[in-house]
Every structure is written in structure tokens, then in C-alpha cells.
Write a protein that binds this DNA or RNA. Structure first.
Length: 571
RNA sequence: CGGAGUGUAGCGCAGCUUGGUAGCGCACCUGUUUUGGGUACAGGUGGUCGGGGGUUCGAAUCCCUCCACUCCGACCA
């Protein structure tokens, strides 16, 4: 490709509304252009990257024995009614009617469609197991699209669905996909981790997320410093502290804390550390008998909503109690609540349960207690793991401590079980000629998100530094003053033709631009290997080579240059 | 959905307080210049000032209303 034939729409200025680096660089490098909220045009350079990502995914999925199919973006609402998800999915599911007034949706995912297809096509257990995948556009009407293509409304996803007669077969395919995903993300050149994940509303037994590690990630991941343990913080167990609770040494004392509500304010006011305070939150209960439930965590910890809403007494989804309900249950406003004398169930985090002589709200506006102690002053209904794991917690597998880092979720594999197959009655005949509901797994990769994630991990102040495997071009040729030097032009054209003949993906910058403009553009769009051709070098029979990540360039003899470059490419 | 903010040339912005012929930088076009890291000079193209309504002799500017977008939060996979 020659730049004269490429829509190379680079800009010097950063768009003001792009807050993450990948979004900024994708706009500046001419990879994407915004169309409307959460919708983007992909320019030629961007499509080249997308196609490379897709090619790697296809190769590995095919190698793993999956079969590629293609399902429609537009789906009949009927199937979503049948699975029950039309209601569950809510406004994120974009609905519309066709000219015959029939209801349709834009597919945010394809479980219903594939299950419908399989129930029609697959009759016998002999046809199983089977794993079908597609690389396709999805639409989710996100409340708040942001970060460019990292959280857009329309995006490209590789989604795969497997079907099985029993759980062992599902487990085998799941394990196969786990390995396949590791291969895919390794080949994409990403620094990633597979982590145990919550199965969310889809349910099912096993689930792993694949996260690209980046500070701009929206998820928090807990790792063991000494083992392979890794889990989404949503899921990571905060293990019970060792040792018994210390015996009380202080008297329960009421102190005035006028106008101090947050843990921070109270601690500043009383000159305390947050870890000696018990934080009490009132949430809606799951039962009529207990419409409000108290949750207690240590002052320096955060409530984990996912863990809390799994408890029997707690409403799912978790919802904070209203101001009126708080006043009725505790006799004060939020900010002065504490477990002492509370007449509702009190669920205490494992760590908070071993506190002694702690500080808490006095259930009276403007007052707190010091020297509070469990059992003596406040009763515990249940001790449970209801907080987020934090840095330094012991790893749940008993090896090492937890480290917390941020990640971008680029892949997710699930064991779905029979949730969809049962709802849609997807059955086949088993060996006993009986209809049997299928076991399912599903496996997703956010293709467009991978592109953004790759940039989040690979950039410098000049622009993108693509991993070799997904760069829009492997090599760029930058001739100096080609339009005035027939010699430079001739060498450049010849090299271009030779590299193309060797199957190298090469971009030839044949614009009549100043060298500085060319260098800046090539750095910005992140081509890994750069060849500069100029009179100066040719006088000595030299070409100039530089890798995007190299500090400086090196002169390489024209003689044998192609072999030198091919050697670099195969590294 | 709650809070905040912004809509003026393709992009980034000024002008609005105090109403009086639409501006700057980048980009783009022409010419000259320069030629190994976004060169310089000169000239030029391009705008329903988000839409509608109102006040006024006169509205980008003041008022009303609608729309769109962005940021923070909540919500949600």
C-alpha cells in the first residue's frame, strides 16, 4: 500500500472529549471516527488491525475444532420472550418493529439464536459435542458509552457456543477454550491474565474472564503474589482473619460528633484510623420479616455488592435502604448508624467481626460510640464475607498475599449449563432414545475492545506501538526527498516491490511531505519496522532501519538488506 | 435516571458579562521558500453561530423552549 492511496487521516491535536489514551490515539492516528454516541466509523487503517485480530481468532478457533457460522444482527423478539430475557435484559436491549408491526431486537448476544438453530438442526447425541462461533457485530444500548470503542454501543465480538450431552463433555470443551484463549491473547501480543469470575445473571458453574492489564481498566483484579490465583475483585474471597477476637478493654462511651457523617469525617474529628471504625450500611432485606438489614464492614473496607446480594437475608439486586427506612430502623440518619441496639438482622464481615473496642455510630444523630464490642454491646446475626478483597489480604488459596490491579475484560468463558437449552427446549435423543436437554457453554472475545486494549498497553508519547501480530502494516518505507531524487525513488520502489513479493505487509510513504511529517505519522500509527532511504545513506550503500521501540536507528548495507529485514520480522 | 458542562469553519477554541457587518490556531487549496523530526512567508476556500420561538431598529450575545453531545455518579453485562 502506498500512502497516496490510503486515507491517512492523522491529526496533531487530541480531541477534547477523549479521556483514555487508546481513544485519543485511535482518533489521532485515523483508526476510528465518531459517528454518534457509542458508534464509530472504522477507517482503512483500523480495519486492517481488526482483520488481523480476527484472523488470529479464526485460526485458533478452527484449530480448536470450532465451526464458524454467521447469525443475523436482527433477531425476533419472540425468542427473547421464550428465554425470558426480554424482560431481564431491560432497556439495554434495543427493540423495534418492522413494517408488518412484528417485534425485533438488535442482538446484544446470540444465545437464543444459536439455541434455536441447534434445536432445529441437531437431532442425535452422535452429532455432539459441537462448538459454533461467529465474528459479528453486537449492539447493546449502554446507558453510558465511554472510552471510545472500549465501551461502545455497537461492537464486534467473537462469540462461540458449545453443546453437550453431559457436564464432562462441557468441561472438556471449556478447558479447550481456556487453552485456546490463552493462545489467542498470547499471539495478539497482550499482557493478560485469566481470572476467576462471577457468573453474573447468566448463572452456571464455571467462568473465567481474560483481562488485559492496564491502568485504565474498569475492573479490579486480585492476584496472589506467590501462586496462580487470580480473580475478579467482585468474586475474590476476603478470607477470615487468623486468631480470636481480643477481649474488650474499654467501656462503651458515647461521644458527640456533630455534623460528622462519613468515616473520613468522623476519623478526622476523633483523630482515629479508619480501621478502628465499624461502617454500618442499611440495605433492603429479602424477606417481609426483615425489610431492612444492617451490613457491617471495617471502616477502611468497601462493601462488595455481589457478595452481599447472594445472602439469603439481602435483597437481590442489592439496594440501599431509603432515608425513611433508615430513620425508622435506626432512629437516626445515615452517618450515625451503628450496630449497638439495632433491632434488625446485623450481618458482619469476617474482618469486622474480630474487631474489639471499636468506634461506630450511636444511632443518634451527631453521636458515635467508642469502645464498642461485639456480644457485650452489639449482637451479630451472621458473619459473612461481604467486603472487597484489598491489597495485602491473604490469598484465598493460602499462598501469598493479594495484589490488586486494574484490567480490561477482553474475553469471558462460561459454563452455561442448561439455562437456555431448557428454556428453549433444545433437546436431542440420547443413547436410550430419550429426549435430553443439552448442556451449553459460551465463549466471547471483544474484538474491537482488543484493539483498544492493545493500545492501552503499547504506546509512548509519539503514538501507538502495535504488537507485531496486529499492526496495520509490518513495515514502512520512508524515502527522503523522493520527488527530487530519482535515485532514492528508484531504490524505494524496488524495495517496495521486493518486500511485497515476499509477502510482507508494507506501507510506502510516497507523499511529497517533509521528512518530519512522515516520521511523525509513521510513529503515530505505530508501524513496527521503519526503513528510511536517503541520498546520504545511498552514498555509502546503506539503508536505515529502526524498530518503533528502538531508541535510535542503525545503518544497514543495501546488499542483503531484505534478508536482514526478514530476520527482524521473524523474531 | 441524578448532578455538572458544552454546542460558533473539518478539528481545537475566542467572541456572549456591556446587543451594532463572524474571529484565531490547526487542517485544506494556490504560489514562493525549505528539505533527515509536524519549515517559513504571502494569498485563498470554507460558517443556517445546534433547532424553533420571543424581546429589540438591530441578537452568536438577552429571554423562553426543544434537541444533541460530553464529563461525574447511579444503574447494567
Amino acid at each position: 500500500m502506498k500512502t497516496s492511496n490510503l486515507l491517512l487521516s492523522t491529526t496533531r491535536e487530541t480531541p477534547s472529549d477523549a479521556v483514555v489514551i487508546s481513544h485519543q490515539l485511535m482518533i489521532r492516528a485515523g483508526i476510528i471516527r465518531p459517528l454518534a454516541g457509542g458508534l464509530y466509523n472504522w477507517l482503512p487503517l483500523g480495519v486492517r488491525v481488526l482483520r488481523k485480530v480476527e484472523a488470529i481468532i479464526r485460526q485458533e478457533m478452527d484449530r480448536a475444532g470450532a465451526q464458524e457460522i454467521l447469525m443475523p444482527v436482527v433477531q425476533p423478539l419472540e425468542l427473547w420472550d421464550e428465554s425470558g430475557r426480554a424482560e431481564d435484559y431491560g432497556p439495554e436491549l434495543l427493540r423495534f418493529k418492522d413494517r408488518h408491526d412484528r417485534d425485533f431486537v438488535l442482538g446484544p448476544t446470540h444465545e437464543e439464536i444459536i439455541t434455536d438453530l441447534v434445536r432445529r438442526e441437531i437431532r442425535s447425541y452422535k452429532q455432539l459435542p459441537a462448538n459454533f462461533y461467529q465474528i459479528q457485530t453486537k449492539f447493546r444500548d449502554e446507558i453510558r458509552p465511554r472510552f471510545g470503542v472500549m465501551r461502545s454501543r455497537e461492537f464486534i465480538m467473537k462469540d462461540a457456543y458449545s453443546f453437550h450431552m453431559d457436564h464432562d463433555s462441557l468441561q472438556a470443551t471449556y478447558d479447550n477454550m481456556y487453552d485456546t484463549y490463552n493462545r489467542i491473547f498470547s499471539r495478539l501480543g497482550l499482557n493478560f491474565r485469566a481470572v476467576q469470575a462471577d457468573t453474573g445473571s447468566i448463572g452456571g458453574e464455571g467462568s473465567h474472564e481474560f483481562h488485559v492489564l492496564a491502568d485504565s481498566g474498569e475492573d479490579y483484579i486480585a492476584f496472589s503474589t506467590e501462586s496462580d490465583y487470580a480473580a475478579n475483585v467482585e468474586l475474590a474471597e476476603a478470607v477470615a482473619p487468623r486468631g480470636e477476637r481480643a477481649a474488650p478493654t474499654a467501656e462503651l462511651t458515647k461521644v458527640a460528633t456533630p455534623g460528622k457523617h462519613s468515616i473520613e469525617e468522623v476519623c478526622d474529628f476523633l483523630q482515629l484510623k479508619k480501621k478502628v471504625v465499624a461502617k454500618t450500611l442499611l440495605v433492603k432485606g429479602a424477606t417481609e420479616a426483615h425489610p431492612v438489614v444492617a451490613l457491617v464492614v471495617r471502616g477502611d473496607h468497601e462493601l462488595n455488592e455481589i457478595k452481599a446480594q447472594k445472602l439469603e437475608l439481602v435483597a437481590d439486586p442489592l439496594e440501599m435502604a431509603s432515608d425513611e427506612a433508615i430513620l425508622a430502623a435506626a432512629g437516626c440518619n445515615a452517618g450515625s448508624i451503628g450496630p449497638v441496639g439495632l433491632n434488625i438482622p446485623v450481618i458482619v464481615d469476617r474482618t469486622a467481626a474480630v474487631m474489639s473496642d471499636f468506634v461506630c455510630g450511636a444511632n443518634e444523630d451527631g453521636y458515635h460510640f467508642t469502645g464498642a464490642n461485639w456480644e457485650r454491646d452489639a449482637q451479630i446475626t451472621l458473619v459473612a464475607d461481604i467486603r472487597n478483597a484489598v491489597k495485602g489480604d491473604p490469598s484465598p488459596d493460602g499462598k501469598g498475599k493479594l495484589e490488586i490491579r486494574r484490567g480490561i475484560e477482553v474475553g469471558h468463558i462460561f459454563q452455561l449449563g442448561n439455562k437456555y437449552s431448557a428454556a428453549l427446549n433444545a433437546t436431542v435423543q440420547n443413547e436410550n432414545s430419550r429426549a435430553q436437554v443439552l448442556e451449553m457453554g459460551c465463549y466471547g472475545i471483544g474484538v474491537t475492545r482488543v484493539v483498544a486494549a492493545a493500545i492501552e498497553q503499547n504506546y509512548d508519547d509519539k503514538g501507538i506501538m502495535w504488537p507485531e501480530s496486529i499492526a496495520p502494516f509490518q513495515v514502512c518505507i520512508v524515502p527522503m526527498q523522493m520527488h527530487k531524487s530519482p535515485r532514492v525513488a528508484e531504490v524505494a520502489e524496488k524495495l517496495y516491490a521486493e518486500l511485497q513479493a515476499k509477502g510482507v505487509d508494507v506501507l510506502f510513504d510516497d507523499r511529497a511531505e517533509r521528512p518530519g511529517v512522515m516520521f511523525s505519522d509513521m510513529d503515530l500509527i505505530g508501524i513496527p519496522h521503519r526503513i528510511v532511504i536517503g541520498e546520504r545513506g545511498l552514498d555509502n550503500g546503506m539503508l536505515e532501519y529502526k524498530h518503533r521501540r528502538d531508541e535510535s536507528s542503525q545503518d544497514v548495507a543495501q546488499e542483503g538488506f531484505i534478508d536482514f529485514l526478514l530476520g527482524k520480522l521473524s523474531q
